[in-house]
Amino acid sequence: MEGSRAGREPRGAAMAEEWISSVNQSNKAALLTWVRETGIDLVQVNGQRRYGGPPPGWVGSPPPPGSEVYIARLPRDLYEDTLIPLFQSVGQLYEFRLMLTFSGLNRGFAYAKYSDQHGAGKAIAALNNWEVQDGRAILVCRSFEKCELSVSGLPGTVRHAELHTVLLDATEGLLRLTLHASTGRKQGKVAVLTYSSHHAAAMAKKALLEGNVELFKKKVKVEWLKPDLKEQLQALREEPPPSNVQHLGSPERVLPSSEPRAALGRLGALCRQLHLGTPRFLTRCVQAEPNGWQRYWGQVVIPSHPVPCSTFLWVREDTPGTAGHEKMKEAVAQLALMMLGH
């Protein structure tokens, strides 16, 4: 069950050899029996055990973003013989991943990816707070796959076109590249790379760290983009714009003036459709310029989304009142919709 499917020992024998610990033997034995009787294929790699991705008989492309749920508060002696049938009962599973310790216990959390977003929404509605054992209720919420990398320590002379060419040659699935001045004391630049999927981003990270990429032979650091760094970079690069344009996160994105509350309505409808809970907004004015420009910070918290969405926005406050706060809500709603894949 470890590594590739070709040339492996029978599943039951491989699992029995791996689990030499006496911990939790009865539940491990039940899992072995279930695997043997169902013929289900489980593959263990790098601290997780996976079913599917794709499962037998799958036809077509992988599921779209927003189709995966995060499962937490799992009893440590619970395994796939209980969890996979439970999560299959509400929709078609594309993949199920259980995180494991070296002793063979689960680490208390797992991921279930469905064939579409509707399946993930049904799982949240039906199984969040489900008691898998007496008095042990699990948490089920939307999972959002990491697709962004940060590259720090780049030379200050590096150009966007040069870096873009290198990345297109060395990696696959690059959607967007932005360059920023370093946030630390050292001179240089930081790049943010956005990829088409978590898998593409993970493969890019591996290629840039281990591959023979000339630009990355220097002392650069490639890691998953941290939320605090993302917010710092957004704050540093934004200056009062010269014209009456409201920027969202980057110069390429603008807040449409023709539909002043379109994103708010779409986000509310999407959260109801996917059973994510009611979005809650926080906004505040953090800077005011003499020429009338005001800088706002905004955040939206979605109950079934583990990480809040936040950004900054420059607004020309021509009239007093709450207009700036409303524009900030619309901007952060747009950001949340993009993170949800809409």
Results as ranks from 00 to 15, higher is better:
Gly156Ser: 08
Ala123Arg: 00
Gln117Arg: 12
His247Trp: 14
Glu214Ile: 02
Ile138His: 01
Ala181Met: 09
Thr194Gln: 05
Gly211Asn: 02
Gln187Asp: 09
Gly173Thr: 14
Gly211Ser: 03
Glu214Trp: 07
Ser152Asp: 15
Gln117Trp: 15
Glu148His: 12
Ala120Glu: 10
Lys217Asp: 01
Glu231Leu: 05
Glu214Gly: 03
Pro241Ile: 06
Val166His: 02
Asn244Cys: 07
Ser197Gly: 00
Gly184Pro: 06
Thr165His: 10
Ala204Met: 13
Thr194Asn: 01
Leu127Asn: 04
His180Asp: 03
Glu223Gly: 05
Lys226Asn: 13
Asp228Tyr: 08
Asp228Leu: 05
Arg159Ile: 08
Thr165Asn: 06
Leu175Ile: 08
Gln234Trp: 12
Val222Asp: 02
Gly156Asp: 10
Leu225Phe: 10
Trp224Asp: 13
Leu149Trp: 03
His199Ser: 15
Val192Pro: 01
Leu236Asn: 08
Lys146Cys: 03
Ile138Asp: 02
Ser182Asp: 13
Leu127Trp: 01
Ala126Phe: 05
Lys189Pro: 01
Leu236Tyr: 09
Ala161Thr: 10
His164Met: 06
Leu175Thr: 11
Glu162Asn: 11
Val220Glu: 01
Leu174Pro: 06
Val192Arg: 04
Gln133Thr: 10
Gly211Gln: 03
Glu131Ile: 13
His118Pro: 11
Leu215Val: 04
Ala170His: 01
Phe216Asn: 00
Arg159Tyr: 06
Cys141Leu: 07
His164Ala: 09
Gly211Thr: 02
Val192Glu: 02
Trp224Ser: 03
Gln232Pro: 08
Val213Pro: 01
Glu148Trp: 06
Ser143Thr: 07
Arg176Met: 09
Val158Met: 06
Leu175Asp: 10
Trp130Val: 14
Leu163Tyr: 01
Phe216Gln: 00
Asn244Thr: 09
Gln232Gly: 12
Ala204His: 07
Lys205Glu: 04
His198Thr: 02
Ala204Val: 15
Val190Tyr: 00
Ser196Lys: 00
Arg176Ser: 13
Ile138Pro: 01
Val190Met: 03
Leu167Gly: 01
Glu145Gln: 11
Ser152Arg: 15
Leu179His: 07
Arg159Thr: 13
Ala120Ser: 09
Glu239Ala: 15
Val158Ser: 04
Pro241Cys: 10
Leu236Ala: 12
Val132His: 08
